[in-house]
């Protein structure tokens, strides 16, 4: 917990190499740290600073701007209930209240067993399927209170592990570029047009 594992350091270097300037890899590396630990610790931020040649406070400065980076531990499942306009019109606030009652915590808090963190969030771009929520950024659309109850029970019992990985994991398929396919022109000058060579 904290510093990136050697496997993740290797991944970090691969990510850094994709950008013309290394600092562009900062947010991607914070995601790597959050995937490793479920949150972003001070130790992880210091390690990322080392990898990018930044100061720890530069890393913190960026990390603290973005709501998805949790700088203290959260539940295995972050349940994000949308209450913005389209959901508000179709029961988003009632959905949030139902989740609060069911989980026994208010929005913003984590259940004592550390399984769930409940959030009252801004629009998650599923407005035509309101009301909706996300668990670890996976969508559950047009959801009823009964369906929420079943979902939370399933998650707690580990019956949705394939569908919903632990908090911090976004895509389960990483972008991979075979070395021989990478053109590497990004930091250079003129584009190479058909018929030209360099």
């Amino acid at each position: 917990m904290g510093r990136l594992t050697s496997e993740n350091v290797e991944l970090a270097r691969e990510i850094i190499d994709r950008y013309p300037r290394s600092r562009s890899a900062l947010i991607p590396l914070l995601h790597v740290a959050q995937e490793q630990d479920g949150w972003v610790s001070t130790e992880a931020m210091s390690h990322i600073a080392e990898l990018l040649g930044l100061t720890p406070v530069e890393v913190l400065g960026t990390a603290s701007f973005y709501g998805m980076f949790k700088r203290e531990p959260v539940g295995r499942y972050v349940v994000s209930v949308c209450t913005n306009i389209s959901c508000l019109l179709l029961g988003g606030e009632e959905l949030l209240e139902h989740c609060e009652a069911r989980l026994g915590v208010k929005a913003g808090a984590t259940t004592p067993d550390g399984v769930f963190t409940l959030e009252d969030v801004e629009c998650i771009a599923a407005c035509t399927d309101a009301p909706c929520l996300q668990v670890n950024y996976r969508f559950f659309l047009n959801i009823t209170h009964d369906e929420v109850d079943r979902l939370l029970d399933d998650l707690r019992a580990g019956r949705r592990d394939e569908e919903v990985p632990p908090h911090g994991t976004l895509t389960r398929v990483r972008p991979r570029v075979p070395a021989e396919r990478w053109s590497g022109h990004g930091a250079e000058g003129l584009p190479v047009l058909p018929g030209q060579s360099r």
Partner: peptide, 25 residues
């Protein structure tokens, strides 16, 4: 061969990088 070096044998190259944000409208 649709992305990257020498796309479709045309001699034209382009790298595409996927980048995720982190929650900021």
């Amino acid at each position: 061969g649709y992305v990257g070096k020498d796309i479709l044998g045309s001699g034209w190259s382009l790298d595409v990088v996927l980048h995720w944000g982190a929650g900021a409208y």
